[in-house]
Design a protein around this nucleic acid. Structure first.
Length: 294
DNA sequence: CGCCATTAGTGGG
DNA sequence: CCCACTAATGGCG
């Protein structure tokens, strides 16, 4: 497929992922997945970005935990189908599965949640006080929004688009009071984006603000383990509306707590990445990033 | 067969 | 009316 990616052997790098790397990575992902006509190789991409191939390789690997080549494999249709995979129960070896349930969920961002129904945030969030701040994340700049009941919003922005992301979020609860409070949101940012900080002892408090249907869908997303995925129709069945897969898609698209409520783990039944509110490129990045940590 | 593109049916907001 | 869906269908290697 992309022969040039094989020319440079891996160099395992053990550094924590740095937010700035995402800009580089985003360009790479875009080039290899969207410029499919030319199929640029690592050397070409590095040149376009003004980097050396080895430098690019290092940056990419530091970010993803995966070489570009391996990353590419992790976001193919075949691999996506495997993520959807039918819980093939190894009938003979239950102990294996039990042993796996620990390490298998090692990398979950544990979340406790409560719902805030439209009745509660009536008239667009009249009495809702939301503090917000922008922070670096492995997926570009993120906008975090918190209430006294917990994390209410996570959005993403490409460079220069912060304003758009902010307006997107405030439009959801137009009458809420918004207070910039970066120090307050910074603690959340660290917790959310660094897997080292994930622990079941200290779950992250999230408040889901939406309709009953939406909240049901989002809760269902929270049950998908790290590094796995489900189809929209599976989720529809799970909440007892087997024919509502399209409505499920719409509800997932309205998920205000991106990444934390893992909307990137919802795929089309065929394994296709269909869509993502903050850009399919970012969805690819999240799935590939998870593949590198899983 | 497999891989598109098109169509019709779909349910929530 | 809009939509981050999907199963069915028909065309084309």
């Amino acid at each position: 497929m992309n022969a040039l990616f094989e020319t440079i052997s891996d160099s395992a790098v053990e550094t924590t992922p740095c937010g700035a790397d995402y800009d580089t990575v985003r360009s790479v992902i875009t080039m290899i997945s969207e410029d499919y006509r030319e199929q640029p190789g690592l050397e070409t991409i590095a040149e376009r970005l003004g980097m050396s191939p080895t430098g690019l390789q290092k940056t990419f690997t530091r970010w993803a935990g995966l070489s570009p080549k391996a990353f590419l494999q992790a976001i193919t249709l075949d691999h996506a189908k495997e993520l959807l995979g039918k819980e093939r129960l190894p009938v003979l070896d239950t102990s294996y599965e039990l042993g796996l349930s620990g390490p298998g969920r090692l990398h979950d961002l544990f979340v406790t949640h409560e719902a805030m129904s439209p009745g509660e945030w009536k008239s667009g969030g009249e009495s809702l006080v939301i503090r917000y701040g922008f922070h670096a994340s492995p997926f570009g700049r993120s906008l975090l929004m918190i209430t006294d009941r917990g994390l209410a919003g996570v959005a993403f922005a490409d460079p220069g688009e912060e304003r758009t992301a902010f307006e997107d979020m405030t439009a959801r609860w137009p009458n809420a009071t918004y207070i910039e409070d970066e120090p307050a949101t910074a603690a959340y940012a660290r917790r959310i984006f660094d897997p080292e900080e994930w622990s079941s002892d200290r779950p992250l408090k999230v408040v889901l603000i939406g309709t009953d249907f939406q909240v049901q869908v989002w809760e269902s997303l929270l049950k998908i383990p790290f590094g796995k995925a489900k189809s929209y129709s599976e989720i529809a069945s799970e909440i007892g509306r087997p024919n509502a897969s399209r409505a499920v898609g719409a509800a997932i698209g309205r998920n205000p707590v991106s990444f934390v409520v893992p909307c990137h783990r919802a795929l089309g039944k065929s394994g296709a990445l269909t869509g993502y509110h903050w850009g399919v490129t970012r969805k690819r990045a999240m799935l590939g990033w998870e593949a590198g940590k899983a």
